[in-house]
Amino acid sequence: MDLFLHLWIMIFIYSIFAMSLNLEMGYTGLFNFGHIAFFGIGAYTSALLTLHQIPFALAFVVALVASGFFGFLLSIPSLRLRGDYFGIATLGFGEILRMVFQNEVWLTKGPMGLPGIPKPILFSYRFATLPQYLLLTMGLTIVTFLILRIIIRSPLGRTLRGIREDEIVLMALGKNAFHFKIKSVVIGSVFAGLAGVLWTHYTTFISPGDFTLSETILVLLIVVLGGKGTEWGPLMGAFVLIFFQESLRFLKLPTEWGRYLAPLQQMIFGGLLIFLMIYRPEGLIREKGEGR
C-alpha cells in the first residue's frame, strides 16, 4: 500500500514538473535543458526557509517567486539564441547552478545536503502521512493542470504556439516574440519550482546530487514520450516512466545489483529517447492536427 501511495505521489510531482517543461518546450518550442535548475531553486528555497522556522505558506510563495525570478534572469541572455544553442546554454546554466548548490556550503551545506526538512503545514493542517501528502500533490497537480490549460487556451497560449511555428511571421505581425518567450519561461519556472517544493518536503533530505542532468533527461523523456504540446501528454509520460523507475526500486533486488541497475536504467532512458526521436517523435499522444 505504501508503495502504491509513494508511486502516485512521485507521478504527481513529476507531472507538474513535466507540465511546466511542456509549456516551454511543447507549446513555445523552447528547449530548456536546464529546467532542473528551477526545480532545484524551488526545492532549496523552501527547504532553507522552513528549516529556519519560516511558515510553509510563506516559504512556498517565496520559493515560487525565486524560481520565476531566476527563470527571468536566465531568459534575458539566452533567449536571443537559436533553438539548439538555447538548449546548450540552458544546460550549462543547470550545471552551473548545481555547482552553486555544491560550493556555497555556507548556504546549502554543499554536498552534505539538507536533512530533516519539515513536512508542510497549511492552515494548521500538517501533511505528514503518505495519504495526506498524496492529497496535497494530487490537488496541486489538478490546480497546475487547470491553470496551464487556461493559459494554453488563452490568447497568450495561441501566441506562444505561434512562436513555435514561425517566429518570423509572428514578428511581422508586430508582436514582440521575445517578451512572450520570457513569459513562457517564467511561468514554466514557477511551476517547476512548485514541483521542487513538493518534492523536497516529501523526501525531507536534499543534496546537490539530486539536481543533475539525469533528472533533466528524465523529465525531457516524460514530455517527449507522452507527447509534447498536448495537455495530457506530460501526465501520460509521467505515469509510464515514473512507474517504471520507481517499481524497479521496490523490486527488492540484491543490493550488489544496484551498482549496475542505476546506470542500466539510465541507459534504457537514453536509448528510449533516441528511439523516440527516430521512430515516433510525437510521442504517445499525438498533437491535434499533426502527425509530424
Binding site: G29, F31, F33, G83, D84, G87, I88, L213, S214, I217, L220, V224, Y260, P263, L264, Q266, M267, F269, G270, G271, L272, L273, I274, M277, I278, P281
Partner: peptide
Amino acid sequence: LRRTNRLTLLIAALGISFFLRNGAQL
C-alpha cells in the same frame, strides 16, 4: 535524422550522450 530539424537532433544526441555516459559508468 538528417532531414529533421536541429532540435530533434539535439534531443537524440542528448539521448546518445546519456546512454554512453551511463554505459561507461556501468
